[in-house]
């Protein structure tokens, strides 16, 4: 059957959304959806038409156990299991590295002798999120960053060798609280990079480095793995 024929696509989509397409036919239709944009468009149009009918059903709260079971499944607050929470929200992660940061601060002071700023720079260690040895498919990479006292410049430097593939670049991000991170620009994998800005985003409390396609993230948010993160 030619599923791009609008009339057929529309008829199948109507039956699918209304719920009368059943059994093997329903499964076949679902299997076709990913490869047929015309079918998907027809399904969306029928969903837009018919779903508002359900607004008339009286809301019925499920028992509280349902939410508890969902939380358990997605690794909720009570669970210590690793969860897909955003890296900038995992504050506990940071606390363990506070001590390391002060050690690195001293070494960075040597690296970046800064002649007479009115405010001392803030030094951030961005620790590798991947274990040494590259287990888990993400390469281990750590960086230090120094933010000038007035917040208008950030200097980054990799700690050790970063084995970057030629078709990948590193992008530096600033995050404030639970807000999505903002890009500060691309940084070098081999030496110091000076990133100049009017100022850091207000409330920035950590920095991170992600792996991105050439030219940097196309979306404005980190798209590749986050290689390293550090708290201010």
């Amino acid at each position: 059957m030619d599923y791009s024929r609008p009339e057929l696509a529309d008829r199948l989509a109507a039956d699918y959304v209304a719920g009368t397409l059943r059994g093997p036919a329903r499964r076949r239709f679902e299997a076709l959806l990913p490869a047929h944009p015309a079918l998907r468009a027809a399904v969306r149009a029928w969903q837009d038409r018919l779903m508002p009918l359900t607004a008339t059903l009286a809301p019925l709260p499920p028992s509280p156990q349902v939410w508890q079971r969902i939380q358990a499944r997605i690794g909720g607050a009570t669970s210590a299991a690793p969860a897909p929470s955003a890296w900038w929200a995992r504050l506990a992660f940071w606390r363990g590295f506070a001590a390391l940061a002060s050690v690195a601060a001293m070494s960075l002071a040597v690296l970046l002798a800064n002649p007479g700023p009115t405010l001392p720079p803030i030094v951030v260690v961005m620790n590798a999120t991947a274990p040494a040895g590259g287990a888990g498919g993400v390469m281990p990479a750590s960086f230090v960053a120094s933010i000038s006292g007035d917040g208008r410049a950030v200097v980054t430097k990799p700690l050790g060798n970063v084995a970057l593939q030629p078709d990948r670049v590193l992008e530096l991000w600033a995050a404030a609280g639970k807000n999505p991170p903002r890009s500060l620009g691309l940084i070098s994998a081999s030496g110091a990079t000076v990133v100049r800005r009017a100022s850091l985003p207000l409330g920035t409390d950590h920095l991170a480095v992600s792996l991105e396609p050439p030219g940097g993230s196309p979306t404005g948010a980190p798209t590749g793995p986050v290689l390293a993160v550090g708290q201010l």
Partner: peptide, 16 residues
Amino acid sequence: GDRAAFATLYERTSAH
């Protein structure tokens, strides 16, 4: 990955 937002989403939509 914002759990609080997801919890609110659940609160707003689960009864429907």
